[in-house]
Computed example of a mutant assay.
Amino acid sequence: MLQANLTSVTIFVFLGFSNYPKLEAIICVLCLLMYLITLLGNIILISITILNSHLHTPMYFFLSNLSFLDILYTSSALTPMLTNFVLRRNTISPSGCAAQMYFSLAMGSTECVLLSLMAYDRYVAICNPLRYPVIMNKRVCVQIAAGSWVAGCLAALVETVSVLQLSVCGNNVINHFTCEILAILKLACVDTSMLQLIMLVIAVLYLPMPMLLICISYAFILSNILRISSVGGQSKAFSTCAAHLTVVVLFYGTALSMYLKPSSVDSQEIDKFMALVYAALTPMLNPIIYSLRNKEVKAAVKKLLVTNTLGTILISVLK
């Protein structure tokens, strides 16, 4: 059979959810709603963090990074799928596929690192509050955020470049709604054991290890919470930690089940639905769980809305 480099393929065809014609429209509508909520929630969080000086703290700096990251991550995964559904097409160019794969991998890897470092930030703030301003100073925060982005982008670059060297044998149908790396590997007709080893090493570094750091951080946080004498304070703290850990388990759990499962297990159909969880659901939940429930953020939003409303009234009066 004729072999060709992945970049030499003329066009790729997405199979998407066409195997489920009755569900396809419902899935796309739900994805559109989640995408719009994600954009709205994250844009609000970034805006109030920039405009409100009271929110110029390490926690909200990291949350702004997470929000920007989630916007890019969701857009890279869902926008092409929704566009294809509306325009009734299911194709993508090789360069477009490579770009989509890179951005999805980069944003996903960066989020894995950033979430773990955000958990460390919470650990320092709760368990060592007196030294928190010294430990988490502005320079350290910028270095942590920049390190997360660099680490995620480098990991994605290694994987994407490796995948682009693969040869395919006439098969250009991707059994996914996006250029997901595991779906692309299914098109290869050469030995991919070396690439799978590279992916395994990266997956271990970016999934179970950050999740372990998060679990250790929250173990210390919960231990510290138990010393709180106020029952109301304990209940509120436990509620916040439980919400954070729920998002973490959803994000890391689905990614772990996809990228660390045995290569002999063929679960492409399940993978498509699981990809929706970490590409659409968790980016939507992040601003709600991590910030929009906070009193500080609610107060900032109300202040922003009141200011804008008064400004609009004054402008109309002056006219």
Score class of each variant (00 low, 15 high):
S235C: 11
F238W: 13
M199L: 05
Q234L: 14
F220Y: 10
V201T: 13
P287G: 00
A219F: 09
A280K: 02
V277R: 03
F273P: 01
L285G: 14
L276M: 09
V190L: 11
S291M: 09
R293L: 08
F273G: 02
R227W: 08
P208Q: 10
T192I: 15
L213Y: 10
M258C: 10
K295L: 11
S267R: 08
K295G: 02
S239Y: 04
N294E: 12
F251P: 00
S239R: 11
S217P: 05
T254D: 04
L285A: 15
I221K: 07
I228L: 15
T254F: 07
Y206P: 01
I221W: 10
A219K: 05
L197R: 12
I225Q: 05
A279N: 12
S217W: 02
Y206W: 09
Q234D: 06
S239T: 05
R227Q: 15
S230V: 10
C241E: 13
L250Y: 11
A280E: 01
K272C: 04
I221T: 06
D266A: 15
Y218K: 03
L197W: 02
A279G: 13
I216P: 00
Q196E: 13
V247M: 14
Q196K: 13
H244R: 05
V249F: 15
Q196F: 07
C189L: 12
M209K: 04
K272N: 08
D266W: 01
A275H: 09
T240Q: 14
A280T: 02
L226A: 12
F273I: 01
L250E: 13
I221G: 05
L195E: 00
A255D: 03
Y259S: 03
S193P: 00
L213W: 09
N224R: 10
F251N: 02
S291Q: 08
M194A: 13
V248N: 04
A275W: 07
Y290P: 00
V190M: 14
E296Y: 06
M211P: 01
Y206S: 03
L276P: 02
V204G: 00
S217R: 04
D191C: 08
F251E: 01
G232Q: 06
I198S: 13
L292P: 00
S263D: 07
V231P: 03
L197S: 14
S235I: 03
R227I: 10
K272S: 05
K261T: 12
L195M: 07
S229H: 11
S239I: 01
L250M: 15
M194Q: 11
I228F: 13
L195V: 08
P208W: 03
A219Q: 06
Y259H: 05
A242W: 12
G232A: 06
R293T: 08
L200R: 09
K236H: 08
K236P: 03
C215K: 03
M258S: 07
M194I: 14
V204I: 14
Q234V: 11
A219N: 07
L207Q: 06
I288Y: 07
P210N: 03
A255W: 05
S264R: 12
Q234Y: 07
M194P: 00
V248T: 04
Y252N: 02
S291K: 09
